[in-house]
Design a protein around this nucleic acid. Sequence first.
DNA 1: GTATAATCGAGACGGTACGTCAGGTCTTACG
DNA 2: CGTAAGACCTGACGTACCGTCTCGATTATAC
Lengths: 210, 210, 210, 210
Amino acid sequence: MPERGPSRGRPRDIDVDRRILIAARDLLLVNGYAALSIDEVADRAGVAKTTLYRRWPTKDHLIVAVVALMQDDVPILDTGDIRADLTDYLRQVADGLNTMRRAGLPEGADDRSAGVVAEVAAAAARHADLGTLIRAVFARRNAMAIGLLASAVRRGALRTDLDVAVLFDQLVGPLYYRILVTGEPVDHPYLDLIIDGALRGARPSHAHPA
Amino acid sequence: MPERGPSRGRPRDIDVDRRILIAARDLLLVNGYAALSIDEVADRAGVAKTTLYRRWPTKDHLIVAVVALMQDDVPILDTGDIRADLTDYLRQVADGLNTMRRAGLPEGADDRSAGVVAEVAAAAARHADLGTLIRAVFARRNAMAIGLLASAVRRGALRTDLDVAVLFDQLVGPLYYRILVTGEPVDHPYLDLIIDGALRGARPSHAHPA
Amino acid sequence: MPERGPSRGRPRDIDVDRRILIAARDLLLVNGYAALSIDEVADRAGVAKTTLYRRWPTKDHLIVAVVALMQDDVPILDTGDIRADLTDYLRQVADGLNTMRRAGLPEGADDRSAGVVAEVAAAAARHADLGTLIRAVFARRNAMAIGLLASAVRRGALRTDLDVAVLFDQLVGPLYYRILVTGEPVDHPYLDLIIDGALRGARPSHAHPA
Amino acid sequence: MPERGPSRGRPRDIDVDRRILIAARDLLLVNGYAALSIDEVADRAGVAKTTLYRRWPTKDHLIVAVVALMQDDVPILDTGDIRADLTDYLRQVADGLNTMRRAGLPEGADDRSAGVVAEVAAAAARHADLGTLIRAVFARRNAMAIGLLASAVRRGALRTDLDVAVLFDQLVGPLYYRILVTGEPVDHPYLDLIIDGALRGARPSHAHPA
DNA sequence: GTATAATCGAGACGGTACGTCAGGTCTTACG
DNA sequence: CGTAAGACCTGACGTACCGTCTCGATTATAC
């Protein structure tokens, strides 16, 4: 939607965007949100602060951009085995979350910490536009996973009276809950338990329809 | 836990604690975390900053204290009707979250925002002690709810092979997920759907073992 | 002095110079030096910043150009009545100074302020070339006035042992001093007093020629 | 006039003022106005920037404070020999001006430059309060010199129909004029010429033995 | 009572980062 | 070439808030 006419003036240097995002991501993962300063990002990216601010008007905006980028590329495939596909998907989500949870923590510190994840949620709360943006990113990714469930319903692998959106929440919600609130680990065994719990009542019950 | 010996010198003014917490809570609910400054809290409470810092060494500590206070009193009762009890419990949790979600938002703004909830999670991530503390608060409250489920299992209202902790996560997790991440509403109909989904596979299957 | 060879490529648009100077002058008189930004001048003149910088390499250069332009045309005539001629001359100088003194001041503000005059002096201090330039402008104008005095000396209206340059300084210096330093008014009565003072000892003393 | 009641809170550290002013003066004299940055002053003074800004809200304010300090202590004495006293006074003024004129200039550069003097005048023009302040400083110093002239009038060393304020302007004005405008030197011979010119017509003309 | 000790109010202080502004340079596309 | 447009770099500005420190004035217990 930019669509800035026949392109007047010096065009933006796309490489600059890249360098900034990389610098920001590196600093974010190493030092965490608080210790990341715009000055340092600009410095590392070899860019003037003004140039950075032209693109992201706020530290929060920058961080959200970084996170959005990190979340963007989650390949999802529908093999027909709903359980296997869900496992695969949840593991990717969990990996991403665990990475951000550890961001900025001294090597080996107990990672019962929400780290960057919470900061991003907070950032989204502070700026309406960021809320919209980040939710769009998540919605896009979730849509694919929800499609997975819907397709399973269509081919009879799951009950037809399911609210797949709710089922999805019950798969993913617990991960965020542990990361953001209780600080408990989100590892593969846990994911299996979650999937067990969610699918237990979701399979079609041959004999008696609810 | 303070245990300050045979008490020498001028004793602390307990009323001061109260005034600070009230001031902080008010500002927090009205303006949100970022816009709350220690200077202003102290000013409002009619208290010197030193006095405040003697009690809470950090802005984060103060905020967490405020939130902990707000979460403290959630009565839970076990009527024997597991579905009714869960509904009651989840509604209380949802109410608390929705209140904090709205904190600092301009009246009537669309409250698709994590507001204070995220800030607290972030604060907990920044200070190990706060993480421990806030998790203890949650653990205590959760323990009661998990007890509810366990008792239901014992009396045969739920399957015996359930992991009640996981079941609990699948009940509560979606609420936090919506509040903190997707920004979707967490209202009574949604709670019913969540409970439906969770209990669907959790009831004992007399005739047919899944 | 430019002397750009056999003139290749597109010739400069002379009108551009004019528009820039006009825009700069207007902004200078309205807002004063500090509030005048090159971007705004260019914008007003409907000119690219590059174009402006091709002509004046610095904000200071531009401002000096503007001021030089304003000072340029001070007609001086030698009627033979030294006192009347001096009065005429000093009034013109005072008018120019008073105009610049008021530049950038909120309407009706007490104009005990050096305004643009001081800024130009400062600009001249910052760039050697501007110093030379502005001094040349003043020298040219002063030379005419000094010529006035010299002619008076020649025809016996003033003492022959006078250092006319010093006499000139004592006529003009006080005006700048008031404008730049004390902020006191420089009006017609004051000019008369200055001329009185300067001429008092400068007239030939019939009885005893020093 | 501060008069801040019974002195509440931590009192200002007077030494901080001193250190800041010294640092500022040093940097000013070495580098000139433009190259003096608040950050560096604070750094040199071993002081937080905020501490500096608590005292002087603007770079201009700080510089004016520095200059005011440098001008403050000009001893004037009335020996009865008006010409000698004036010479003494003007030399002090000229010394101060010449020092500031040279501020920030590369060693040995031609000092046909207004340097700091003009910047201060400009600063005074930008901030009304600074104008008032600096004029008060000058007024105080000038009052003493004008007193010198008045006393000379009283004892018959100068004509009684003199406007001593105007006479004073004609003594001092030329110095500022040369410094700020023409860039010509202000040395001892010049001072003598100025005094000659001013006193020539100012002596009582009874027998007037020049 | 009088020393001792801690609390409280007030506000200065050091520090860190923020986001902004303006001056000047560079890079496009177009005449 | 010159011009328009606008991105870019540089450097500094003034601000905000945090958490610490230094006063003087209280208010308690201990001797």
